[in-house]
Every structure is written in structure tokens, then in C-alpha cells.
Design a protein around this nucleic acid. Structure first.
Length: 563
RNA sequence: GCGCCUGUAGCUCAGCUGGAUAGAGCAACGGACUUCUAAUCCGUAGGUCGCAGGUUCGAAUCCUGCCAGGCGUACCA
């Protein structure tokens, strides 16, 4: 609808210029917005105010000319005439549009016809985008922080895809390097302890109980003869076994959390294919790498980083950064125009150096984006939980999903902008009442299903799902127009969410739609003796049901038929 | 010190590509179930938008400086 209003304003401005009522045909970037107050109409534009300088006329004078031009348009075009009830000047020069009820009815037909595609946009123009998220080391189970990143990454992927981008979701497995060796050592030492050897468990090894479980599994499988093995060989075996097992667990946990990936990308595969060395050689050939103190340094400072960074240590081993350079090069070679990484806020210092490497390898800074997800503060009844990976007693994502459920967890993670830290209260997320927003929204879907089922039982409709609105002209209550207006705004919200990469836009939208529905439900009965009106209202609530489902789907939350 | 994020109602937060009287949920108080699910609704109360300047016809929103909190600042990942 916003686009329609904008077109009318542009047409009217052009006409006014042709008539000499406006002095210039230049149109600055104007806003069409929904005013906060009903008395300001359905839509409002600041066209007159921002045109004042160009037109060399006072804003109210411009507004008058434009309004008279719009009125002429409305008289000559039946389509526009039936849309607009009145247009007013207000305040310093706002032009306020009041639309007729009739203007809104087509929205419902569109929803029923387009169904699961309602709200989809083509703004992405099939641009290839990669969203990489979670990417946890396979050295331990996923924790709460990963959960937030997973929910954000997965939803951003869904939203971009719905907004017309060609999206690939990827998990980068850090299955190479020191942390894997440490994992192997951790398991091996636990094994030796089991065999009765008195060894103190090193502080820099992984402390969690899951390490002992892994050791037990290996012991069961391999038997006592495993202790006779050469230590290096044994550690390598433990590392491989443990990483594989942990990765399997990570996949399961994510799947239970409703998160799926198009690709799992192994860091080790970069080494196996020689791509890390190739990346280093490439930078060397461009004189972007130099040697100092026995190590190789990348000149990231030349590209805006605070200092230069080591890619090969003086012991000859490559750093994590080196494989990351190769990884990002590889992403662009796969043809992505946009690469989006979802990281925890504690990695923010890493952005500049990756950005530097992206630019150094010939891409533009705009092609690399990072979604920085602020930390999660886990609470129980307002009291903080300690999450220390070193102590090994952290709350896992699985713990949370098991305790509060997938839907509540995802909705909670996406309820706030990821720019802010998030307080996640386990007790609150478990409550099945209005403290917990997920039920507020899901309840709408279940309630409507109940209404539709009843209508079917009473033979008012043949099917609880239909694709054409009925008697829409009977929807004249203020609450009905209001609901349709919110349904109409879904696509704009999808686009805004995709543009800003902020899934909580959809959360906020869902809350306002749910609130409008619950109000309506309490004030008006859908099924009444008036068969004609009943059909109209059934069309309306079916529209609400579909939009709730579509929006929840973007957030990875299910829309239940009953609760 | 430097860098990133944040500071809006008692609490948790929307609003931030500038617009008209700053919104929601929770908590508090008062109401609404013989009805399509009360996991709901209606009403009341509650705010110098961290502080100080600046830009603008107009600032919670943009700029500068300060104050406060979180995170980071490795030849770790």
C-alpha cells in the first residue's frame, strides 16, 4: 500500500509541475509513513517539507498544490478515487492520506491466494548470499551463546531467502589446529586416569564431564590394550574419535533446535587442498607478507587494522587467521556476492583483520558483513548462572531446549536486537502464561484454528482453508480495518528485517499483530447468526492465521493448531 | 589507553536511514468468562529518552565531548 501512495504522490507532483503549480520537477527522497495517531490518517508524507528548498516555496503552499493535484487525479482515475477518502494538510506541512475501507480488502484476497508466499519479496533479486553461523569448535557441546547465534543466523537466512536472496547457510568446522590436539590430550589423560595412573588433569585441557564419557566409550571399544599404544598415536586417535562424536552431537542439537545448514565446511579440507598455503603464497606475491622474529606477518595495517597479524608462527605452524583468510577467499570464489558471518561479540576484534584480508584479496569491504551477537546472560528466577567453559560446568544449548522447548527458546533469543545483551531467564521461558511471549503469538494461531474448525462443523465452510475472500465489503469495524492494515504491512516488515539483517523486526511485528487479533477476538464474535458477515470474518481470521504462520516460520517457531 | 556494543517507565526492551502528543510486555491497581480456547481482553497509574553542547523549520534518532555498564585488545581459537 505504501508503494501505491508513493506512486500517487509522484504522479501528482509531476502533474502539478506540468500545470505550473510547482516550480521544479525534482523530487527528493521522501518518506511515506504510518502516523502514530489515527487523526493523522493512514499514511503521511513529508514531501512538502523536504521539497521547500528545491521548490523555493513554503511547505504548506507546496502541500496545497500537491493536494489539489491529487484530487484531480482522484476525479479522473476511478482506481485512485476509490482508494482515497480524503487528503489533508497538517502541522508544518505533512500531507495526510485517509483511505477508504475498500482500499484494504484486496489485501485479504492476496493473502489467501499467495498463502505461504504472502509477504515474500523480490528485493534480493536472487543475489547470492552466504550466511555462516555457529561454526563452533568440535571440542565440546554447544552452549547458550551458540544458541543465540544459531537462532539469529538461521532466521536471517530464512528472512533473506523470503526477501528474494539466493541464500546458502553454512557451518565452518574448526577441525584442525591446536584445539583438536588438546581435545585428544584431554581424552587420553582421562583414559590413563581410568587405568589407575595418577596424573593431574592439566588446567588447559577441556574440563567437562563429557570428556570422561568419551574416554569411557573409547575404553569400552578398544579395551585395555589401547593403553599400550604409542602416546602420539593414541592422542591422535582420541582426537579424531572425540571430534567426530562431538560434531555428531552438535548436529543433533542444532537439528533439535530447528536449525539446518546447506553445507558443513571443514577447515581441515582447506589444508588438504593446499588452499591455506596458496592464500599465503598469493599474499606473498603481492608483497603483503613479511618476515619478523621468525614468523610471517600479514600487512593488515595497510588495510585499516590496528596492527599487522601473524599468519605463520615461528614454530612453523599456521594460525587460525591464516586458514580464515583462505576460507574467505574460497567463499568468494564460490560466487557469493555477499558474505555474512555471525559472530559472538567477544570476537569483534577479529572483524578488521578479516575485512583487511578480504580487501587485500581484491574484494570490497561491503562484500563482507559481520553480525555481531551480544552475549547472553543466563538467569534462573533473576539470579545469574555462571557459565565458564574452563570450569566445564556450562549450560548447554541442549539443556535449554530440553528444559524450555525449542519454540520458547528460539522466540526468546530473537525477541531483542542482537545489538543488546540478552537476559535469558530459564524459569520465565518455561512459564506458560503471558510472561512468555511465544504463547501469546502461538495462541492466536490455535484460537483461529478452533474457530475455523467450528465453522466447518456447522457447515458454514467446506474446508478450514480457502483461497478466496468472501463478502469482504462487510468488514467495516475499526478493529477489522486495523487488522487488515497490519496484515498489509507484513511485506514491508520482511523487507526491513532483510535490509537491516535484524530478525527482531519480525518478532515486534508478530507481537503487534497478535495483540490486534486478541483485542478483536474479545470484542467481536466471528461466527454469528449473520451467515454473510460470518463468511467475511472467517476470511479475515484465516488471513491472520496465515500471516502468523508465515512470520513464525521465518523465526523457526512452529504454529500449533491447538494448545 | 584504544576498539566494538549498550544507556528510553519500577523491571525487560521496541522506536534510532530526523517528523506531529515517545510505545509494548512484565510488575502495581481496578474491571471482564452460561459465549469461537481467560495461555485472552478493557481501564488506571507510571518517562528531565545517561549528562552537556552543536546541526535543523523540527532531535530519543545525526555530530562532538563527557559519565556509566558489558565485551575485547596473543606468534589462542
Amino acid at each position: 500500500m505504501k508503494h501505491t501512495i508513493k506512486r500517487i504522490v509522484l504522479d501528482a507532483a509531476q502533474k502539478a509541475y506540468e500545470n505550473g503549480a510547482l516550480l521544479s520537477d525534482q523530487v527528493p527522497e521522501m518518506e511515506i509513513e504510518e502516523p502514530r495517531h489515527q487523526s493523522h490518517g493512514d499514511f503521511s508524507t513529508n514531501f512538502a517539507m523536504i521539497s521547500a528548498a528545491i521548490q523555493k516555496m513554503p511547505p504548506r503552499k507546496i502541500a496545497e498544490s500537491l493536494i489539489s493535484s491529487i484530487e484531480t487525479l482522484a476525479e479522473t482515475s476511478g482506481e485512485i478515487g476509490s482508494l482515497i477518502e480524503k487528503v489533508e494538510i497538517a502541522g508544518p506541512g505533512f500531507i495526510n492520506f485517509f483511505l477508504s475501507n475498500k482500499a484494504w480488502y484486496p489485501v485479504l484476497d492476496r493473502i489467501l491466494e499467495q498463502d505461504k508466499r504472502y509477504g515474500a519479496s523480490d528485493m534480493g533479486k536472487n543475489e547470492k548470499v552466504q550466511v555462516e553461523f555457529v561454526s563452533a569448535n568440535p571440542t565440546g557441546p554447544l552452549h547458550v551463546g551458540h544458541g543465540r547465534g544459531a537462532a539469529v543466523g538461521d532466521s536471517v537466512g530464512n528472512i533473506l531467502s523470503f526477501a528474494g536472496f539466493d541464500v546458502q547457510k553454512e557451518f565452518y568446522i574448526n577441525d584442525s589446529g591446536r584445539q583438536i590436539r588438546t581435545l585428544g590430550t584431554s581424552v587420553w589423560i582421562r583414559l590413563l586416569q581410568k587405568a589407575g595412573k595418577e596424573i593431574k588433569f592439566p588446567e588447559d585441557c577441556y574440563q567437562g564431564d563429557y570428556i570422561m564419557d568419551l574416554a569411557s566409550e573409547i575404553h569400552e571399544k578398544e579395551g585395555d590394550r589401547f593403553f599400550q599404544k604409542d602416546e602420539d598415536e593414541a592422542i591422535a586417535h582420541c582426537a579424531k574419535f572425540a571430534a567426530k562424536k562431538i560434531l555428531k552431537g552438535i548436529k543433533e542439537d542444532l537439528s533439535d533446535f530447528g536449525v539446518t545448514f546447506d553445507q558443513w565446511f571443514s577447515e581441515q579440507s582447506l589444508y588438504d587442498a593446499g588452499r591455506v598455503q596458496k592464500a599465503i603464497d598469493d599474499f606473498k606475491s603481492k608483497d603483503l607478507i613479511y618476515e619478523k622474529d621468525g614468523a610471517l606477518w600479514f600487512r593488515s595495517q595497510d588495510f585499516g587494522d590496528e596492527k599487522n597479524r601473524v599468519v605463520v608462527r615461528n614454530n612453523g605452524l599456521t594460525t587460525y587467521f591464516a586458514s580464515d583468510i583462505a576460507y574467505h577467499m574460497e567463499k568468494y570464489e564460490r560466487g557469493f556476492d555477499r558474505v555474512i558471518d555471525v559472530w559472538g561479540a567477544d570476537h569483534h576484534g577479529y572483524i578488521k583483520r578479516i575485512d583487511a584480508s578480504v580487501v587485500a584479496s581484491g574484494r570490497k569491504s561491503e562484500h563482507f558483513e559481520v553480525i555481531l551477537v551480544q552475549l547472553v546472560n543466563l538467569l534462573r528466577r533473576g539470579k545469574p548462572f555462571q557459565m565458564s567453559k574452563r570450569a566445564g560446568d556450562f549450560v548447554t544449548l541442549k539443556n535449554i531446549v530440553d528444559e524450555v522447548g525449542k519454540d520458547a527458546a528460539r522466540f526468546m533469543f530473537l525477541s531483542r536486537s542482537y545489538d543488546s545483551g540478552l537476559d535469558f531467564d530459564l524459569e520465565l521461558a518455561k512459564q506458560k502464561n503471558s510472561n512468555n511471549p511465544v504463547y501469546y503469538v502461538q495462541y492466536v494461531h490455535a484460537r483461529i484454528t478452533g474457530i475455523l474448525l467450528k465453522a466447518k462443523q456447522e457447515n458454514i465452510i467446506q474446508d478450514i482453508d480457502f483461497n478466496k475472500g468472501k463478502n469482504l465489503y462487510l468488514l467495516n469495524a475499526a478493529e477489522e480495518t486495523n487488522l487488515i492494515k497490519i496484515l498489509d504491512a507484513f511485506k514491508e516488515n520482511v523487507e526491513k528485517s532483510a535490509q537491516t539483517l535484524h530478525p527482531h523486526v519480525i518478532f515486534t511485528y508478530l507481537m503487534s499483530l497478535a495483540s490486534a487479533f486478541h483485542s478483536y477476538y474479545n470484542k467481536h464474535k466471528v461466527i454469528t447468526d449473520d451467515k454473510e458477515l460470518t463468511l467475511a470474518r472467517l476470511s479475515l481470521v484465516l488471513g491472520v492465521k496465515k500471516v502468523i504462520r508465515n512470520a513464525l516460520t521465518l523465526l523457526g517457531v512452529t504454529a500449533p493448531e491447538r494448545m
